[in-house]
Design a protein around this nucleic acid. Structure first.
Lengths: 110, 110
DNA sequence: TTATTATATTGCAATATTACGATTAAAGGA
DNA sequence: TCCTTTAATCGTAATATTGCAATATAATAA
C-alpha cells in the first residue's frame, strides 16, 4: 500500500527512520556537505552547485527544513540557509546511539 | 519522475544516502535493534516481534542483506539471521564521517 | 511603475516503496 | 510418501518520492 505503519513502532524507531529518510537522497547529502563546507551561508548557488533544477532543490531544502537540520533567514532578495547546529547535534546523539549498539555487548553468535 | 539522478553525485554521497535509505524505515530499524538485543541469532520470531506480515518482513530483510548489514545462515528449516559486524563497523565509519562534519571547523555564521 | 532577481508553489508524469494474499520451495517429521 | 513448518517469491494495490515546467510571490533596482 506504500503507507508505512508508524503506529506499531516506538517513538525512537520512528525518529531514527525519519532522520535517516532525509539523508536517504544524495542531493540532500550534497546540500548539507556544501552548507558545512562554505564558511558563509549565502546559499543561492546551490542550484549551480548540485546540478538539479531550482524547484527540485527547493523541495529538498524544504525536507531538510522540515526536520530542523537547516534554517533559513531572509536577506533581501535571497534567502540565507545554514545548518541548525543545535538540532544537528541532537540528531547526532539519536543516530549515534543507534549506530553504537554493537559496542554495548558482544554476542559471539555467527 | 521518481528516479534519483545518482550519476551527478559523488560516490561518497551515494554511499551515505544508500545506507541512510535502508535505515529510513522503522521496521528495518526495529529488526536491527532486535538482532542486536537477542544474544542468539535464530530470528524466526521477527514476524511476531515486529507485527508485519511475513512477506513484508522478508522483503525488509532482503534490503538489509542487500546492503550487507545482516547475513543469513541456513539452519535446518529456519534461517539464522544476524548482524554482519564487520560491515556494520565499516558503515559506521562512513556515516560518522558525515555526521561529524560540524566538528571540523566552526563557522560562526547565523 | 516596471523590470529583474531569487525562491516557493503548483501540477503532473514517471518511478519507487510499502504491504500483503497467494503461492512456491525446501527441509524435517509422521 | 504426505504433512507441517519456515522463509522466499510473485503479483498487485495503494501511497510516496523524485524531478521539472510553468507559474506565483516577494524584494530590490531602474
Amino acid at each position: 500500500m506504500g503507507l508505512t505503519k508508524t503506529e506499531i513502532f516506538t517513538l525512537e524507531q520512528n525518529q531514527i527512520s525519519s532522520i535517516a529518510k532525509v539523508f536517504g537522497h544524495p542531493a540532500r547529502v550534497a546540500i548539507l556537505q556544501h552548507l558545512f563546507k562554505i564558511d558563509s551561508c549565502i546559499c543561492g548557488d546551490l542550484v549551480d552547485e548540485i546540478g538539479l533544477a531550482q524547484p527540485t532543490i527547493s523541495q529538498h531544502l524544504k525536507e531538510l527544513k522540515k526536520i530542523g537540520l537547516i534554517k533559513g533567514n531572509i536577506t533581501g532578495t535571497s534567502i540565507c540557509y545554514c545548518i541548525d547546529k543545535e538540532n544537528w547535534s541532537n540528531m547526532k546523539t539519536t543516530l549515534t546511539a543507534f549506530l553504537d549498539q554493537d559496542l554495548e555487548d558482544s554476542n559471539t553468535c555467527c
